[in-house]
Write a protein that binds this DNA or RNA. Structure first.
Length: 482
RNA sequence: GCCUCAGUAGCUCAGCUGGUUAGAGCGGCGGACUGUUAAUCCGUAGGUCGUAGGUUCGAGCCCUACCUGAGGCGCCA
């Protein structure tokens, strides 16, 4: 059998005159003569030229949209304007015919909502194949970034016995019969009889275990699935998503912010350098879509232009207290345009974050030192600062245009007594965190880390507006098909 | 979970203040085409108008409930 050539390598280094065999799916069949073939290896198509007189009628008829074909022939310079090379087919074989009377996709612009219901076919479209190539590129770049810098990839558990992680509602994991679970004498469910001998859930974060790693290996990162049972119906939440969580011993909040910026810029840069063709396609796609929008609804910059801008400029860094001041001095506040009043002690609303990022600073913004009241128990309590009305913690959120919070992190509370006090203050069951507390008791160290929402990063880099379109098989409320 | 909007052909949509046989483009199917670029041209078949009730002489259009989807907000990554 002749070896298959991938279209990516043919287009990258075309060897004119070579005999090649290609296999792929038909994107278009024009003039009974020209096949635009795509095999997923690249955004580009390879044109296959067939002679309709040389092909059996039966084969010719089966060359149709998204049918799978194998073609062998000589690679020649193209006479047409749309491509530089093409294959003149000597043989053409149908590997998988397509029944267009029943096939849902069409060679035209389809809505994202429609394609979402056809997740088994949507990856064959230009848009989704580009999105998923870029998704892969970012995942690879994550590992490369940390490996090259001496971090260890730590696998934290997916099933967790702790419900004190403090990051929202959890999915319960159980093998007990849900209709008739064993009961204790007082009638409550007897979790001792469950598979693990206790109540267990799917993880909402690998951070607490990540800290165990950091306090031994120095620098670790996790990259795994994360589950939140929140009834979130937005374009930037999933019930099952992937999160990257670096955790670094001896890093303070400043180091943490440096890492966050450097890491994110690296990821974007990696895609710009290695998957520019896909980005160009996605960029054009957005510009096409925005043609119909009024000027003020359009993006201020093209996709690639924006990515380069983020790579080339430092993120703005401000404290929460400064952010509130900026907001209270802002035009929209004075004109009463905010639905919620920016006020020290209340969390920043989406409208506030968007103003800071998109209107005021016009670049990614890192907000730090939030009031302790609405942040997690494990964040390090700051010393009282002048001009700050209340107690704050060394938290930091990285805010991006369009998608908001991409990173949430902090310096961790490493002082045993302070941590214990906070756990008590917030009514968190101390006995579940015994090992977490012991990390502070026995050879503790200052350390910091953050969580990067992987899909949000993919969303930002691809410009996709709905997070469900950057994960192959989205899990969201009422959504678990495929 | 809350708010807003939407559900009419396979897809995207039009359908006037309620009034006869519900339209278009794309796609499909049949045909033409030896240099096409979302190819083009000719012809043709597709619809219990989201579901269930109700108002009315008469409902795609009005009312009620439910279902589904989208967007915004909250929760956060």
């Amino acid at each position: 059998m002749i070896r298959r050539s991938e279209i990516a390598s043919i287009l990258k280094e075309p060897k004119i005159g070579d005999q090649v065999t290609v296999m792929g799916w038909v994107r278009a069949f024009r003039n009974n003569r020209f096949i635009a073939l795509n095999d997923g290896s690249t955004a580009g198509n390879l044109q296959i030229v067939v002679d309709p007189d040389q092909l059996p009628e039966e084969v010719l008829k089966q060359i149709s949209f998204h049918a799978c074909v194998k073609a062998t022939g000589q690679l020649v310079e193209s006479q047409g304007a749309g491509q530089s090379v093409e294959v003149v087919a000597e043989t053409l074989e149908i590997l998988g015919g397509n029944n267009l009377e029943q096939y849902p996709l069409q060679p035209k612009r389809q809505t994202m909502e429609f394609l979402r219901d056809k997740a088994h076919f949507r990856m064959r479209t230009n848009t989704f194949s580009s999105v998923f190539r870029v998704r892969h590129a970012i995942a690879y770049a994550v590992h490369k970034y940390y490996n090259d810098r001496g971090y260890y990839y730590l696998h934290t558990p997916i099933i967790t016995g702790s419900d004190a992680e403090g990051a929202g509602e959890m999915f319960q994991v159980t093998t007990l019969p849900i209709g008739d679970p064993p009961r204790t004498e007082d009638g409550s469910i007897n979790w001792k009889e469950d598979f693990f001998g206790k109540a267990t859930n799917l993880t909402v974060s690998g951070q607490l275990q990540g800290e165990i790693g950091a306090l031994a290996l120095g620098k670790i990162y996790t990259f795994g699935p994360t589950f939140r049972a929140e009834n979130s119906n937005t374009t930037r939440h999933l019930s099952e998503f992937w999160m990257i969580e670096p955790e670094v011993a001896f890093n303070d909040i400043e180091d943490n912010m440096d890492l966050a910026q450097d890491f994110v810029q690296y990821l974007i840069n990696y895609v710009l350098e290695n998957y520019l063709e896909d980005l160009e396609f996605l960029d054009q796609r957005i510009q096409q879509a925005e043609k119909n929008l009024p000027q003020d609804k359009r993006r201020p910059m093209g996709l690639i232009e924006m990515l380069r801008f983020v790579v080339d400029n430092d993120f703005e860094r401000i404290t929460y207290t400064e952010a509130i001041n900026v907001l209270r001095r802002s035009k929209p506040f004075k004109k009463g345009k905010f639905e919620f009043e920016p006020q020290w002690g209340s969390d920043l609303q989406a409208e506030h974050e968007r103003f800071l990022v998109e209107k005021h600073f016009k670049k990614p913004v890192i907000v730090r030192d939030y009031p302790k009241a609405f942040k997690a128990f494990y964040m390090r309590l700051n010393d009282q600062q002048e001009g700050v009305p209340g107690e704050t913690v060394a938290a930091m959120d990285v805010l991006f245009p369009f998608i908001g919070e991409v990173i949430g992190g902090s310096q961790r509370e490493d002082r045993y007594d302070v941590l214990l006090r906070r756990i008590e203050e917030m009514d968190i069951p101390e006995e579940e965190l015994w090992w977490y507390l012991e990390l502070r008791k026995f050879g503790g160290a200052p350390h910091s880390g953050f969580g990067l929402g992987f899909e949000r990063m993919v969303q930002f880099i691809t410009g996709m507006t709905n997070i469900r379109d950057v994960i192959p098989f989205p899990r969201a409320p009422k959504t678990a098909e495929f």
